[in-house]
Amino acid sequence: MDWKHHSPSRHTLLAARASIIRAVRDFFHGEGFLEVQTPLVTRSPAPEPHIDAVTVESGKYLATSPELFMKRLLASGFDKIFQIAPVFRKGERGRIHHPEFTMLEWYRLHADYGDLQGDCRRLLESVHDAMLNDSQGQWAEDRSALKEPWDVYTVRDAFSRFAGWTPGPDTDQEAFEVALVEKVEPRLGFPSPCILKDYPANQAALARLKPQDPSVAERFELYWKGIELANGFSELTDPREQRERFEAANALRVRNGLLPYPMPEEFLETLTELPPCAGIAMGVDRLVMVLTGAPDLDAVVAFPPACP
């Protein structure tokens, strides 16, 4: 939509946000998922090299994601769970970053990242239907874009096409990220959403390596209109490899002058019980922003955070 000339009122945007969140809940309830809530205060956020947790008191942090708690639920026998929760990340502030934002996460037992890509497609269509319905057709422009086939690129294909080179399993992370941001991301998801999948093994985070090709991880991101909306994995369930990756992340934190996080021992213990599964995190504020055509996250939250 042409934002400059038809900028919707704040009330309209917050109403659209409410429709979207209700439609997300309806979708997952309809698919037989159980809605769960997990602690917002934790002793051990997932050790991530580049995500900084807010400290609430000595040894306690605000959740940067509900991921580890949700996988502990899976390991204890739940098979399809979802959650919509606030998460907190220190120092992130920009057009599409807020230090406090709303995350949607969902997990499926005995599934892989391909199943999640199908979920994304049905979820977005279903959410868009509800949004149209609630607003008497105000947000109709994206209708056909959602129905068209979505582009699916492997990271290798997308880089060779848009950045002019092909990353390998040991590609320098910094060069990878700069090219991703400058050359690749701005081209993804026009007009239909797009899947970027099979990340180099050293960018796996908590994803398992692809059994047929361990140089890449079964990780994907969902993009629409150049905006990263979600990050999903076939989950890594090998406790030893997971511990090594956490240790590597903490080592990188220390090298960058950041404090390491405590090892999430309870999570690592339950990992031995975790069957194959897949999980994904989607930024709800970004979803609202893209679906309404808003120029930034500030437009789609009731109270934008202060600038640093």
């Binding site: 920009g94 992370q173 910094e174 960018q203 991101e221």
Partner: peptide, 14 residues
């Protein structure tokens, strides 16, 4: 100016 932070990556200031 744009603040970027792709996926699990580091903060980039473009």
């Amino acid at each position: 100016f744009e603040f970027s932070k792709p996926g699990k990556g580091q903060a980039l200031y473009r």
